[in-house]
């Protein structure tokens, strides 16, 4: 931001600086055009559509004013889905953070084939959600699934469980798969930060007689604090809006027990064909998310 501080007032800019500013605008212009077309316009259109009642197949509709928003506030579906979204987000995010920090600490140690271990841990994050879901639905299969038989052979279960078809198993199932798929993000971010903690901090603590647990709480955790805040905000935003994983694993079911806000919007628009109402739900969802977003943007200072 030094560029702004040293920049002379606008009216006293040299011809060269003005030429540079023009070039700068020219370079960003294609991006601005595409942005306006595919993001800004649809965003405004979503808000506009939310005051209409539109039947998806014909795209015919009437102006209904605030009716969609009154339905949102009083109909119950939005609040139910908001609750489901919060349970899913808090559940999967906590697991991601705990598993992520744990594994990052282990992988930071000098273990055999460390880079292979890191690759294996990283892989689920980059895997297509479709692939992840197929594999897990096969693992969860109630008759032939490896998970049930593995747990029976280990003596943890007596009977095969219906993982995705009943509650609370379905919620536990999606939270588990979500944690498996997204915790590597936490591992990588935490690992990168761990490498920058000066070794002499640990030396000093060791001399003072701090054990491994004490060193973790007195040195590692405070050092990780700032990166953890950013990870938690970012992952909270991403988990909150997750669609593919839940839609493909349970479709929101059984009934609507795992129907998060993203699924509610989709279901309303393309299942029930009520596009206007769906747009209102999506605007409502965005308003909830805006709180996280502002927090994140504030926290990172736009970096």
């Amino acid at each position: 931001m030094t560029a702004i501080a040293t920049n002379p007032p606008r009216d006293r800019r040299s011809p060269l600086e003005r030429a540079y500013a023009r070039l700068g605008v020219l370079l960003i212009a294609p991006t601005i055009i595409v942005f306006s077309l595919v993001i800004v316009y649809p965003l405004l259109a979503a808000i506009y559509l939310s005051v209409f009642s539109i039947y998806t197949p014909t795209l015919q509709g009437d102006f209904v004013g605030a009716a969609n928003y009154i339905e949102l506030l009083t109909g119950g579906a939005f609040w139910h889905s908001l609750g489901v979204t919060l349970i899913w987000t808090v559940g999967t995010l906590s697991l991601q953070i705990i598993a992520g920090i744990g594994l990052a600490l282990l992988l930071h140690q000098n273990i055999w084939f460390r880079s292979l271990a890191r690759s294996l841990v990283l892989f689920p994050y980059f895997l297509s959600t479709v692939v992840a879901v197929l594999v897990w639905r096969w693992l969860f299969n109630d008759l032939y699934g490896a998970l049930n038989h593995g747990l029976i052979q280990l003596g943890i279960l007596d009977m095969p469980l219906d993982w995705l078809g009943s509650m609370p198993n379905a919620m536990i199932g999606v939270i588990l798969v979500g944690a498996w798929k997204y915790f590597p993000f936490v591992v990588i971010a935490v690992l990168a930060r761990l490498q920058t903690i000066p070794e002499n901090l640990y030396e000093a603590a060791r001399i003072d007689g701090a054990g491994p647990v004490g060193r973790f709480f007195d040195i590692t955790l405070p050092q990780l604090r700032s990166v953890l805040v950013v990870i938690i905000l970012l992952r909270a935003i991403w988990d909150f809006k997750e669609f593919d994983l839940l839609y493909l694993l349970t479709g929101g079911g059984p009934v609507t027990s795992t129907q998060t806000l993203s699924l509610l919007v989709y279901q309303e628009a393309f299942g029930l064909n009520q596009m206007g109402q769906a747009a209102a739900y999506s605007v409502g969802m965005m308003l909830v998310m805006l709180a996280f977003m502002v927090l994140y943007i504030r926290r990172t200072g736009g970096k």
Binding site: V38, I39, A46, K241, V265, A269, A279, S282
Partner: peptide, 8 residues
């Protein structure tokens, strides 16, 4: 979120 943009 993508679902906000998907309808328009």
């Amino acid at each position: 979120p993508s679902v906000v943009l998907i309808i328009p």
